[in-house]
Design a protein around this nucleic acid. Structure first.
Lengths: 256, 256
DNA sequence: CCATCTTTGTGCACGCGTTCACAAAGGCAT
DNA sequence: ATGCCTTTGTGAACGCGTGCACAAAGATGG
């Protein structure tokens, strides 16, 4: 999973474990699919299979929400959709701003998953004056100068950062100062935020590196090859040669 | 974090805990930045701050790799960069294919972080015949028919899925059948894969929902408002109304 | 109304991950 | 060479998350 919680070490919110909260959207998605097919009830076993988890874990997760099941029958799909939606806070609209409208920012703006879960793109913001006014996904891009005004007038509490790494912390600071208390960070940087602000990060580069680790392990188990080969040393040395200048001046979205 | 490990419950590979592996890329990034500034050594305290973790955790993480530090001094930056790169398997080139060249796929293709860490985009693949031959990020898009051929002739073991949810499992099956053993999934679906295949997922919708949960909790603690308000019920009911048809036929990338 | 059968909800145990706290180790100054 | 000072490496304790296994609960059929 490309996700990583940053701060908030192990805060069990209102008795619901963090690990459970992270799975609720998964259950909700599976339940929504069942709801569309007009399935009235579902057993923990079936739903767990659809969500890709263990049925015992699913039952324990639901037990934190309350006793919404019926023994011998299962769970009422519609009721559970409502309960989970409510628990996740999806019963209200969340205005969201996306900062950094490069390739990735544009992809996010076009992402259909926003609107369908109570998230509304309130504004697209970019530092490039040439972008200002240009519509992306039907929404005109606004200049960074407007950031504070946009946040405050729309009551935005969730911000998405899709800028290059060099700009991320600065953007983050401005978002927080303007009142944003939850940030989804796509820039490959560690963001520092005050207490009370949640940060979640999505980092493609890290995901790939984790996959490479397991891939290497799988390959190494058979061929038994290990240790620094000459080629390996060469590549390692070239790693730094690739990276010129500070993080900020790489034009592409999300430099590593 | 937008990341979630899927299968592989708790396999401690060669003695290195999974949680440690997930942090190694973070350390590597911080170390690379230090290396660029020609910093010769760094203490666990400094590096931990740069990586956004606890110094004790960092030292324990490094202890799994071996004793690469010098007491009273710290760690040699260059040496550590090499050791972590080697451990993560970044000392070799990993050809990667990206399947699904929509908004997101194009953003990924343009992502600078690929090349700088030993990942090479071997091919871009899309099901739309109109896309075939069109260059994206300097690489011509190829049709899905070529998938097996591309995988085998390039020795690709890592695949990135950026298709709509409805196509993801099918693409996944074909990738695995052709020899791919690690998959990074951006489509909002649970992928089923045989043993030995690693799947990591990046799911924007889930991340936002987790943020919304905490955001609601923060808001609720002050205003003490709880329970299903009429407005809440309205929204919950409209959740399903938004979602027409099966997952597959939503045109946008990554429907939720 | 009773027996049976299905499925939930959870007590319990186990293992991973995190953190504390400190002894061991090495550099450095004198 | 010796003592001091810094920083590593790790033993031990703790807490969270997971999974097992079963008792309680309720539906269903006779």
């Amino acid at each position: 999973m490309a996700t990583g919680r940053t701060h908030r070490p192990a805060t069990r919110s209102r008795g619901i474990p963090e690990a459970t909260v992270a799975r609720l959207p998964l259950y909700l998605r599976a339940l929504t699919a069942l709801s569309e097919r007009s399935v009235p009830t579902v057993s923990s076993e079936e739903l767990a299979a659809a969500a890709g988890v263990n049925s015992a874990k699913l039952r324990k997760d639901f037990s934190y929400l309350g006793s919404y099941g019926t023994r011998g029958v299962g769970y009422d799909v519609e009721y559970l959709v409502y309960q989970i939606s409510r628990e996740l806070g999806l019963t209200q609209d969340w205005p969201v701003v996306i900062v950094g409208i490069g390739n990735l920012g544009a992809a996010l703006a076009n992402y259909g998953g926003f609107a369908s879960r109570g998230f509304r793109v309130a504004a697209l913001i970019d530092a490039d004056p040439a972008m200002a006014g240009k519509p992306v996904a039907g929404i005109p891009v606004q200049h960074t100068d407007e950031l504070e005004h946009i946040i405050e007038s729309n009551g935005v509490s969730i911000g998405v950062i899709a800028t290059p790494a060099g700009a991320a912390q600065q953007v983050c600071d401005r978002l927080v100062a303007a009142g944003v208390t939850s940030i989804l960070n796509f820039a490959p940087t560690v963001l520092t935020v005050p207490d009370g602000v949640d940060v979640r990060k999505v980092d493609l580069s890290i995901e790939l590196q984790i996959l490479a680790f397991h891939e290497q392990r799988k390959a190494g188990e058979e061929s038994g090859q290990e240790g620094g080969t000459p080629a390996a040393v060469t590549r390692a040395a070239s790693v730094e040669a690739d990276r010129k200048g500070p993080d900020g001046d790489v034009p592409a979205v999300m430099p590593a």
